Amino acid sequence: MPDQFWEAVATSLAAAAKASTADELVAAVKLGPDQGSGSGEAFFAGSGGETQLHEVLAESGNWDIDWIEYDYHWTATSRADGSVVEYTEGDLDRRPA
């Protein structure tokens, strides 16, 4: 079971690396496991892993990390369309630009 969990997290991170808008990012994160665990539009269950979602976004070149309080709370803006997301302890939500 743990291997399936981390494989699903890897799939979600790979899709997130290609996402260039908030809609695409939410859809990518929803590919990951444990979607019922959070209260946001999507839930990133892989925060205990080596690779963090904000790192993938920053490395993709599609996003600007606007503000970060550590791995558990940050905001990012899409360079493609200006859409904004907020990440809080695994929950990912779209926010007004």
Rank of each mutant, 00 (worst) to 15 (best):
residue 40 G to N: 05
residue 34 D to Q: 09
residue 23 D to A: 02
residue 93 D to R: 11
residue 32 G to I: 05
residue 33 P to V: 05
residue 75 T to M: 09
residue 43 F to N: 04
residue 85 V to M: 02
residue 42 A to I: 06
residue 28 A to N: 07
residue 20 S to T: 15
residue 95 R to S: 10
residue 56 V to E: 03
residue 66 D to V: 10
residue 37 S to P: 01
residue 75 T to S: 15
residue 40 G to F: 05
residue 26 V to F: 01
residue 9 V to W: 07
residue 22 A to I: 04
residue 27 A to E: 08
residue 28 A to W: 05
residue 95 R to P: 05
residue 70 Y to C: 13
residue 55 E to P: 12
residue 77 T to M: 08
residue 95 R to G: 06
residue 7 E to F: 11
residue 39 S to G: 13
residue 16 A to L: 06
residue 2 P to L: 15
residue 57 L to C: 05
residue 51 T to W: 09
residue 96 P to S: 02
residue 32 G to Q: 02
residue 50 E to A: 14
residue 44 F to S: 00
residue 87 Y to R: 00
residue 77 T to S: 11
residue 80 A to Q: 13
residue 49 G to C: 08
residue 69 E to C: 07
residue 79 R to L: 15
residue 11 T to S: 13
residue 97 A to H: 13
residue 20 S to E: 14
residue 24 E to I: 01
residue 21 T to N: 03
residue 2 P to E: 14
residue 21 T to C: 01
residue 78 S to Y: 10
residue 37 S to I: 06
residue 31 L to F: 01
residue 54 H to K: 15
residue 32 G to R: 02
residue 69 E to K: 07
residue 91 D to I: 11
residue 16 A to V: 05
residue 59 E to P: 02
residue 56 V to H: 05
residue 47 S to W: 15
residue 95 R to Y: 12
residue 13 L to K: 06
residue 8 A to V: 10
residue 6 W to M: 10
residue 31 L to W: 05
residue 78 S to I: 07
residue 58 A to N: 09
residue 91 D to H: 10
residue 29 V to H: 01
residue 89 E to R: 12
residue 29 V to K: 05
residue 31 L to S: 04
residue 49 G to S: 11
residue 59 E to C: 06
residue 49 G to V: 09
residue 25 L to G: 04
residue 85 V to A: 00
residue 72 Y to G: 12
